[in-house]
Design a protein around this nucleic acid. Structure first.
Lengths: 327, 327
DNA sequence: TTGAAAGCGCTAACAC
DNA sequence: GTGTTAGCGCTTTCAA
């Protein structure tokens, strides 16, 4: 391995000078500079990032903590984060927390020991105190913890309302909801949006709300039971796209025609929604934009740049496809 | 930040002693040890990983370079890699190369500068020389480069044969193939397996082979053209599941009934295959197992442990679901 | 404009 | 058993 010492020796200068040309700071004579640059090239020297980190107490690395990389929403997000991080010269440490608090806490200890510069976190498990105790810049994404913590989410409540209202508009008379995990704040918001729209309806009752755990297989099972018990249901708002797909499967297995007998709307706007038959009507979040924005904010925070705003609730968008009736 | 010096001072010992209890090596009196442990706890001291890396020239970190995290095959793989790495005390640096050689090369330089201990690589772009020039333990996964490089792949050729043979068995008379990217070695192998089974068939001609680029939308388009041109096609082997889903969509749009008019088989065994209607018959790779095995091999390589074998071609498995006729 | 040297926090060889 | 110290490769202060 060739070090800064080797370069210095070959160029007949001190390591300080080499360091100066490496970091483009301090005075260094044009000629010496050229010489050093030459030697660097000929020796194919690359500065050691670890040594630099030790001194600088910074590693040009971001941590990305995701609850489940297997849920298609998160790879789309991760791609955006990676894109922006890389373009800004940061690398990405990736953690899959599987929604386990203990894992998250271990990860975070790990991050601190490595002089990681900042963290992008999607979690329900950590609370405000825990996050603020981190002493590391952090941006929370997808699942808000607290308004004082930099955050990028979307209008989940409005989205839930919009989805439900749309089902009403196209003529659905009994609308059920497949809810995500209780402890998940965005599932809760989407659910509240639904409630807002249906609680005064004469047909509404609590049993129209079922729990699908943001997971296809569970959603299929519970939807089948639901449709068997209440065949009058003609609209389903699923808390995410994956569960909506599960609901489509359930309907199909029971011989219910979509969208003629039953309209289904999801939430997320993941690519999967265009792969199903019928294609999925959904409330789309700007997933790439979320990752991009979160990473920008984080990097600005790290680099001490001015930031106008650190709490974002991005707009969602109704995408009409084939799983819902025409209005 | 509290350092080893602080601990030493508070415990009235030298840093060497603290280091000894930290690393559980060298002699240290039980009492002193307890004292040190106490101080560590009371100060909430965590050793600095960067300083340790600098000395050890190792960072307990693995690099994971994937071509496209957005392709559902890779998150499933990444999950396995992350699981095993974490369980063995390694963290994971994640790179999304988007199939670009330049990006991969930048990433790899990066890795070396950070004392990354090893790399898991899924790529077509790098050749044998480039990989061997790395001077870092590496395991290639999903896409073989060379038999001398540690590798975990599956029997792509056999899989291609098996898929095609199965379509013949269930009575398909004209079988098309949607091929993955030309430069992708696994796409090539699957294609060869297909060819082996069909090249002597009287109905076979070159135009039954179309290019779908491992991508759903492209696959839908080309399949529609194909089916319009050759309506006699009653079986399609798609080079991966995502393209198979694209083919299902195409068939659906053209009003072809699956599996009655047309049987479709994919390759990969990703979770998506169970989400579609009809559910996808496929040649399943043991995706989790691939990631797990690759990571184990890599860690053994890094830690200098004995390894019986470094080139694995895992078995694939035919999973019969609804997109193909019954035999 | 350049160099010597201290120091980032840790490990390990060597001395006692 | 324990301490002293050099050194991992780099940056930056200070002096020249």
């Amino acid at each position: 391995m060739t070090t800064i010492r080797d370069v210095a020796k070959h160029a007949n200068v001190s390591v300080a000078t080499v360091s100066r040309v490496l970091n483009k700071n301090g005075y260094v004579n044009e000629e010496t500079k050229q010489k050093v640059l030459e030697v660097i090239k000929s020796l194919n020297y690359k500065p050691n990032a670890v040594a630099r980190s030790l001194y600088k107490k910074s590693s040009k690395t971001l941590g990305l903590i995701l609850p489940d990389i297997t849920n298609p929403f998160f790879p789309e997000l991760a791609k955006a984060v990676e894109d922006v991080a890389n373009r800004s010269g940061y690398t990405l440490l990736f953690y899959n927390s599987e929604e386990q608090v203990e894992k998250e806490q271990i990860y975070i200890e790990n991050l601190k020991q490595k002089y990681i510069d900042g963290v992008i976190l999607a979690t329900n498990s950590l609370n405000k105190q825990q996050v603020e105790g981190l002493e590391i810049p952090i941006v929370v994404v997808d699942r808000a913890i607290n308004k004082n913590i930099p955050t990028v989410i979307t209008k989940n409540y409005e989205g839930g309302k919009l989805a439900t209202k749309y089902l009403k508009e196209i003529g659905c008379r009994v609308i059920a909801h497949i809810k995500g995990p209780d402890r998940n704040i965005n599932a809760e918001q989407r659910f509240k949006g639904y409630i807002e729209e249906v609680s005064n309806e004469p047909w509404f009752h609590e049993e129209l709300i079922i729990h699908g755990n943001y997971n296809m297989r569970t959603a299929t099972e519970v939807t089948k039971k639901l449709l068997n018990k209440f065949p009058e249901i003609d609209g389903i708002f699923a808390g995410n796209d994956v569960m909506a797909v599960g609901a489509i499967k359930a309907a199909h297995q029971l011989g219910r025609k979509i969208p003629d007998d039953l309209s289904i709307i999801g939430f997320d706007g993941i690519a999967l929604g265009e792969m199903t038959i019928p294609e999925l009507t959904t409330i789309a979040q700007p997933i790439y934009r979320m990752g991009e924005l979160a990473t920008h904010i984080l990097i600005n925070l790290i680099e001490g740049k001015a930031i106008k705003q650190t709490y974002y609730e991005l707009d969602i968008q109704l995408i009409k496809r084939e799983s819902t009736k025409r209005a």
